[in-house]
Amino acid sequence: MTEESEDAIRHIYEQWHETVVRRDIEGLMALYADDAILESPLVWAVQPDLGSGILRGKMAIGDFFAAGFRSPSNGLGRWYRTGIFFANGRQLIWEYPRATPDGDQIDLIEVMDVSGGVITHHRVYWGWVGFRTLSSLPAGAK
């Protein structure tokens, strides 16, 4: 991994989390490529009319996050992580673990492909607590 790619990965790792916690949509969207892809079961749960859990393009991804930021009581807002991440210069991976110092939270794995210092493909994998939470939310009403 080059120093430049290592710096870009660390920047995305730190800024993605910080902008989500602050609900800073502009800062968050600055981390994504214009033609980025986001894949998550939450996309399908919130927008079942799409027929998939895939969003294409910064505008669609930004609209999705902005809607989520407006619904802070949806049960998806705890963001504890350990500070450990894995990267190879092209891909960044970290966990939001189920077990936290303050009890259970929704468990997620974030996987991001990075190119040119921005996220080009973002996949979110949900653990059993997250799946249980998604299953209890009414479709389209998150």
Rank of each mutant, 00 (worst) to 15 (best):
L134F: 11
M112N: 02
D113T: 09
G27M: 08
R22F: 06
F69W: 08
W44A: 12
F69T: 04
A67G: 09
K58H: 13
A33R: 14
E3G: 14
D7P: 01
W94I: 00
G57A: 08
H11F: 12
Y96D: 03
A87E: 04
A87R: 00
W126R: 01
I9S: 11
E14V: 03
V114H: 00
V111M: 12
V20Q: 15
S52G: 07
L50S: 11
S135N: 15
E14K: 10
F85R: 02
A141G: 02
F86Y: 10
Q91Y: 07
F69G: 05
Q47K: 09
G57I: 04
M59S: 13
G103A: 08
G116K: 07
Y125I: 08
R90V: 00
G77A: 14
N74S: 12
W94Y: 14
H121N: 15
R123Q: 15
F64Q: 00
V20G: 10
L134H: 08
E18K: 13
V118K: 14
G83I: 03
W79Q: 07
P138S: 04
Y32A: 03
A36W: 01
H122M: 13
W79L: 07
A99Q: 13
V20K: 10
R98G: 02
T82A: 06
V124A: 05
V111G: 01
I54W: 01
W16V: 00
V114Q: 01
H11G: 02
A141D: 12
V20H: 04
V118E: 12
H11Y: 08
D49A: 11
F65L: 08
I54D: 01
L137Q: 13
G68H: 06
G89R: 08
D7Q: 15
E95W: 04
K58G: 06
I119F: 00
Y96F: 15
L92N: 01
A36E: 00
S5C: 06
F85V: 00
T100F: 04
Q91H: 10
E95T: 06
T82Q: 09
D107W: 04
D104Q: 13
A139G: 03
A139F: 12
I61P: 01
A87V: 00
E6K: 07
V46A: 13
W94N: 00
Y80G: 05
S40I: 05
A33L: 07
T133V: 05
E110T: 02
M1I: 05
F64S: 00
G51F: 04
S135C: 10
Y13M: 06
M29K: 11
G103F: 06
L137E: 10
I37T: 11
L108D: 03
Y96T: 06
S5M: 15
H122N: 15
L134P: 05
V46N: 10
A33I: 13
T120V: 09
P97A: 03
Q15A: 15
R70K: 14
I109R: 09
L92G: 01
I119H: 02
H122I: 10
R56Q: 14
D113G: 05
V20Y: 12
G27K: 09
F69D: 04
I106K: 12
R56D: 03
S52L: 04
T19P: 05
R23C: 03
Q47E: 12
D102F: 14
V111Q: 13
Y80D: 14
T100A: 02
I25H: 11
T133W: 13
W128G: 14
I54G: 03
